[in-house]
Amino acid sequence: MRVEQDAEVTAEAEEPGTQPGDGLPSDDGPGPRATRRRQALVVVAVALVVGGALFLLRAAQLTGAPAADNRALTDTEATARVTGDVGNALTAVFSYRPGHTDATRASARELLAGKAARQYTELFGQVEKRAAEQKLTLTTHVVRVGVTRLTGGSARLLVFLDQVSQRQGGAPATAPAQLSVTAELDDGRWRIVGIASR
């Protein structure tokens, strides 16, 4: 009888799926599930810190001195003014009729300055000669003007033009053009100081 009781005790101890101490806290440290949870929390925390740092850096770039100085982003009235002055100037200096190029030359003297004025003067002599010989009329239409940078006294613009040329008795031909323009404020009026084709 005693032997049978001992055998039952031994069988209970060796029952599969049970270990001595099951259900009791272990001194060996946290289990694999707790370790994974902790690692996930660390990864999320690092991601939040990095994301926050990137956000602050981008905000500083947008509100830093170069961006804050660009009135094209904030001053619609000043942007419209430079857009109008430059668009009108380009229409005036790039439009002419044979026998009436003096008016175009006079407009250029008034509306261009610096490097743009020098380049224009050099090229316009050839234009006048060709216009007279070929009875050529050129009409420039400003399609779109975008101000990329505007400070108190200077502006950079991207301008899209359509230029319609027509020889006497011929059909008109339209050619698009794209210009990078630099302008400076002079006595309350924007004057073009740099022109580059794109």
Rank of each mutant, 00 (worst) to 15 (best):
A80Y: 02
G64D: 09
A45G: 08
D102V: 15
A72N: 08
F94Q: 12
G64P: 11
S107M: 08
D102E: 13
A78G: 15
A80I: 06
T83G: 10
G87L: 04
G84H: 14
L57D: 13
D102Q: 12
R97H: 00
A78P: 14
V49I: 01
A92T: 03
V50M: 02
L111I: 05
L56V: 10
D102R: 06
D69A: 15
A72D: 04
S95D: 01
L56E: 08
F55W: 11
T101Y: 14
E110V: 11
V44T: 05
N88W: 14
H100K: 07
A60L: 05
S107E: 01
A45T: 02
T74E: 04
L62R: 07
A47V: 04
L73R: 02
V44R: 01
T79Q: 13
G84F: 03
P66Y: 04
V49S: 01
E110Q: 11
A65C: 07
T101S: 15
D69Q: 10
T83E: 11
L57I: 10
R81T: 14
T83L: 11
L48W: 04
A65R: 13
R58T: 12
E77K: 12
G99Y: 06
T91V: 12
T104I: 11
V46R: 10
D85S: 01
T104K: 06
V86L: 13
V46M: 05
L57Q: 13
L62T: 09
G52H: 00
L73D: 03
D102C: 12
S95M: 04
R97P: 01
V82P: 02
A65H: 14
N88M: 14
A68R: 06
N70Q: 06
D102M: 14
A68T: 03
V43W: 13
D102I: 13
R109I: 11
